[in-house]
Design a binder for these strands. Structure first.
Length: 916
RNA sequence: GGGCGAUUAACUCAGCGGUAGAGUGCUACCUUCACACGGUAGAAGUCAGAGGUUCGAGUCCUCUAUCGCCCACCA
């Protein structure tokens, strides 16, 4: 059996990732310990909607969360990540309708037309099949979609506690929803009333202000004459002539001289011949249009306000599907746009249309279906927000919740300052039914979780249930405490509330984030989370938003299968700079698949050589590395004199461990990922592994210390630990292949940082850098001389005796890394043809003719560069203000730099002169 | 109408007060026994423009230009 066949050369994630994903779930690895002696860290997932499967944005969100969860867990904290899903009332209902429609009309072609047709047909069939049957279909859909979401999360490696999975329509959760509704109603914070709401004629439900998007559209401003009863006319300007059918007044500004005599007079509304008054109201802007406004109280929020002040009739002229009602007389039954055309035609015919102007207007559209919403007077349920907002504002202002990045704090506060009441009822079926019955006899409103037998006031049994459901965000606002068992006083609630962190996209900050804060403070008397991190949006390579219609979506399942979860996770993490959207592409993922492959091969190399050792040597190495499963993977070696490469690598490890922890604490995922990437590839692989190669390639005798091997394994294992939160699968796999780790449970339960790792070793870093620069110079000189593949000898000269000694000590390593066959050290300088740096001259010894011209070119360029740099630093040092005001260490650094540059410059000049 | 963000190498992006960075791509060389999803070396940037603050500015301030996003009840 050869190790080479056992460990494939190319890493294939598909052969290990599903395995570990399953193991982690089956072993219930990520249930929190509940250990009260440990700090706890809790987070509830932003529950994905059960509308389908997860998209790449979820994957980013879950990757970020998982990185933090794994990191905290490895730090020994009692970590809870609670998973679950949201019923997503309106979104799911639409999808299910669409599905039903698709079944009925399967043969349609053309995506958007088909969607529209399916939805129409689905809605029709929903009404046909009735509430109960439709809800059955919704539950079926929920099971399917929820299962798919769970599968995807498992495949992603999300380290959640599945035993605590929740759904917003679970019976226990629904109890919490009822409880909240009942309490808020009792306190008068929920009320029923008839107001102007945003109505989507397609979805046939009211929607909240947040669910309305604004779009710029080219429109027209029409000037219409309204004749006075007793002669003359007044001209009003409107963008919506069809609403004149519902006009009950015309308003002007009280200070408007032009209309002084008009106020109080009566007009005859064109077309319908209704008599309406001219009234004066401060709201009217005399500078807009004609300064006279038609007032349609039932279909415009401003007009509604005017109507309230003046006690005007509120006449509804558009129905639930935006067709004209019987109040519209001859226009009854017409669609709103058809009615507009007809009204304009009739006005024109009557000579009442004075003129029309082009006008850009901002129009409200339903964020679900893009249908233009209609402001309609309608009876709905509302929540009073201001009393709830006040503590939520304070919580953020006083820092009980930290919002990151900080600019979202201001956005949050601005929105909260001007919050208005929330329309919480929806004319939908899928969701939490509003728990209210109204007595048909006495009108008593009864709040009850189930059907009450009879009226609590008059004992009548004519009780009419509320058929509306609650806005989906009503229930999700309770998520952080309802998932932990509220209203019961559970252990989970006591231990894990308030949660430590919430991560979400900016798009739901108001929908969800703000409302969770308000509800948490209201019902728990404590914030729902201590920090709120707003993550970026994932866009395509051209920075376009991903959308199915544009066809530029990256499907997480697809790329995961193609490149491996680890690669996708890493690509997301390293792109996730706070506050900046992510331009994502397959190429990006490919480069981190290469990284995974690099890690794999480093492991393969180490393991292959380890297995080449004889049994005895291997077990001695193993015993040095240790088995300790509690504090884990060993600790820094003690009691041995470390060789330079080890001092250096442990020093670097200490540095980046600190840097990564600091970056993660600040949600700088990109920085943390980059640090470990760079360390692993360009320090550990490029330098350390190359350096120790000869040592580990040789067989060990009984008298060998095995320290080199043990140290290599320590560093490699420590690197895997640092990598684990980012790339859980490959690290888990490789780690289990290390000696003594086969029987262990999981790397994810081990400490993040190597024990005892704290001090850095500047001297080792400096010496190592010197050797590095010599090696690079030699490679460089060889490349320039066109001797890359040849083994040549070299002479290195320096005035620094310590440096020469260092070089002598590590001569073998330098020969190996630089590809030299011999190296001679010389005190002083070397003549013509040397490769010159600030600390040494390097000369290659070879037969080949030196290309003097190329060398002259290189040196001339170098001289120019040095001259420029020198000029800059000299100028700086000549500046008295700089010397006086800059910090001492900056001045000292500049001085050192000047000296260094001067030496370098001098050498280059001399070398150039020698070349002639 | 308010507010926010972006503008850095061919592309995608980091850096946010002290000598311009990465990944990809490109050029040359290398299939040397961990890795060609690799190695070595290299070319490539008046950090959008104009002012200002500072000893010193991609980095802070102001304005301008272009692009993008969010919020908003002016018919």
């Amino acid at each position: 059996m050869s190790v080479q066949t056992e460990i494939p050369k190319v890493y294939s994630p598909e052969s290990i990732e599903p395995y570990w994903a399953r193991v982690w779930v089956e072993q219930k690895l990520y249930r929190p310990s509940g250990d009260p002696t440990r700090p706890r860290f809790s987070l509830v997932i932003p529950p994905p909607n059960v509308t389908g499967s997860l998209h790449i944005g979820h994957m980013l969100e879950h990757t970020e969360i998982d990185i933090l969860m794994r990191w905290h867990r490895m730090r020994g904290e009692d970590v809870l990540w609670l998973p679950g899903t949201d019923h997503a009332s309106i979104a799911t209902q639409m999808i299910v309708e669409q599905e039903i429609g698709r079944e009925a009309l399967p043969e349609l072609e053309g995506r958007s037309a088909a969607l529209a047709a399916w939805r129409r047909e689905g809605q029709r069939r929903r009404l046909e099949m009735g509430r109960e049957k439709f809800l059955e279909r919704c539950w079926q859909w929920k099971e399917q979609s929820g299962g798919r979401i769970r599968q995807q999360m498992e495949r992603l490696g999300a380290s959640v506690d599945w035993t605590r999975e929740r759904f917003t329509m679970d019976p226990e959760y629904s109890r919490a929803v009822f409880e909240v509704f009942a309490r808020l109603y009792k306190e008068g914070l929920i009320y029923r009333g008839t107001y102007i709401v945003n109505w989507c004629p397609r979805c046939r439900t009211a929607v909240s202000d947040l669910e309305v998007g604004h779009e710029e559209r080219a429109g027209k401003l029409w000037y219409i004459r309204y004749p006075f009863e007793d002669g003359g006319y007044i001209t009003v300007a409107t963008t919506r002539p069809e609403t004149m059918l519902g006009d009950t007044a015309v308003a002007v500004n009280p200070s408007d001289e032009r209309y002084r005599g008009a106020v109080g007079r009566r007009l005859v509304l064109p077309l319908l011949k209704r008599v309406i008054p001219v009234i004066a109201d401060e709201f009217v802007d005399p500078n807009f249009g004609t300064g006279a406004v038609k007032v349609t109280p039932a279909h415009d929020p401003n007009d509604y306000g005017i109507a309230q002040r003046h006690n005007l009739t509120k006449l509804r002229v558009l129905d639930e599907e935006a067709r004209v009602t019987e109040n519209g007389g001859p226009y009854k039954g017409m669609d709103r746009y058809k009615a507009r055309e007809q009204v304009l035609d009739d006005l024109r015919a009557g000579g009442l249309l004075e003129k029309e102007e082009e006008y850009a207007l901002s129009i409200g559209v339903c964020s679900r279906c893009k249908t233009v919403v209609e402001p309609i007077l309608s009876e709905q349920w509302f929540m009073r927000m201001q009393p709830l907002a006040e503590p939520a504002i304070r919580a953020v202002e006083e820092g009980h919740i930290r919002i990151v990045p900080e600019n979202y704090r201001k956005i949050y506060l601005d929105w909260m300052y001007s919050i208005h009441d929330w329309c919480i009822s929806r004319q939908l079926w899928w969701g939490h039914r509003i728990p209210v019955w109204t007595c048909g006899q006495c009108g008593e409103v009864i709040i009850s979780e189930g059907p009450p037998g009879s009226c609590s006031k008059c004992a009548a049994d004519d009780l009419r249930p509320e058929t509306d459901v609650l806005d989906t965000w009503f229930s999700s606002a309770l998520w952080p405490f309802a998932t932990l068992g509220w209203p019961a006083d559970t252990d989970d609630l006591r231990r894990y509330y308030p949660t430590d962190l919430m991560i979400m996209g900016f798009d739901i900050l108001f929908f969800w984030g703000a409302r969770m804060i308000m509800m948490g403070l209201k019902f728990m008397n404590e914030v729902p989370f201590r920090e709120l991190y707003i993550h970026a949006l994932v866009r395509d390579a051209e920075r376009q938003k991903m959308s199915k219609t544009k066809g530029n979506v990256i499907d997480p399942l697809e790329v995961t299968e193609k490149y491996g979860t680890d690669a996708v996770r890493f690509a997301l993490a390293i792109s996730a700079a706070p506050g900046t959207d992510i331009a994502f592409s397959n190429e990006k993922i490919e480069s981190y698949r290469a990284f995974a492959n690099k890690i794999w091969n480093a492991g393969r190399f180490i393991l292959m050589n380890l297995h080449k050792l004889d049994e005895d040597a291997r077990s001695r190495v193993a015993s040095l590395v240790g088995v300790d499963s509690e504090s884990g993977f060993g600790s820094l070696p003690t009691g041995q004199t470390l060789e330079l490469a080890n001092r250096w690598v442990f020093s670097r490890l200490a540095t980046i461990t600190g840097e990564i922890e600091r970056a993660l604490a600040d949600y700088r995922f990109h920085e943390a990922a980059y640090k470990i990437y760079h360390f692993f590839w360009h320090e550990f692989c490029d330098w350390y592994l190359e350096w120790v190669k000869p040592e580990i390639a040789r067989p060990l005798g009984p008298e060998d210390s095995c320290n080199a091997w043990a140290n290599l394994l320590r560093v490699f294992e420590a690197s895997l630990h640092l990598l684990h939160p980012f790339m859980p699968f490959i690290t888990e796999e490789l780690w289990h292949r290390l000696p003594n780790r086969v029987q262990e449970i999981s790397i994810s339960l081990r400490p993040f940082a190597l024990a005892g790792l704290q001090a850095t070793d500047p001297e080792a870093e400096k010496d190592f850098a010197s050797i590095q620069s010599l090696v690079v110079a030699a490679r460089n000189a060889k490349a320039e001389a066109g001797l890359q593949k040849e083994k040549v000898g070299a002479r290195v000269a320096s005035e620094d005796a310590a440096l020469l000694q260092l070089v002598s000590i590590h001569k073998e390593t330098v020969l190996l890394l630089a590809g030299l066959e011999s190296l001679e050290t010389v005190s002083g300088r070397i003549g013509t043809g040397a490769y010159v740096t600030s600390v040494f001259d390097l000369q290659l010894v070879h037969e080949k003719q030196v290309d003097l011209e190329a060398e002259r070119l290189r040196l001339a360029k170098e001289r120019a560069r040095l001259e420029e740099a020198l000029e800059r630093v000299r100028k700086q040092l000549e500046n008295r203000n700089f010397l006086a005001r800059a910090p001492q260490d900056v001045v000292r650094a500049a001085e050192e730099r000047r000296t260094e540059l001067e030496v370098q410059f001098q050498k280059v000049v001399e070398s150039l002169e020698r070349l002639g």
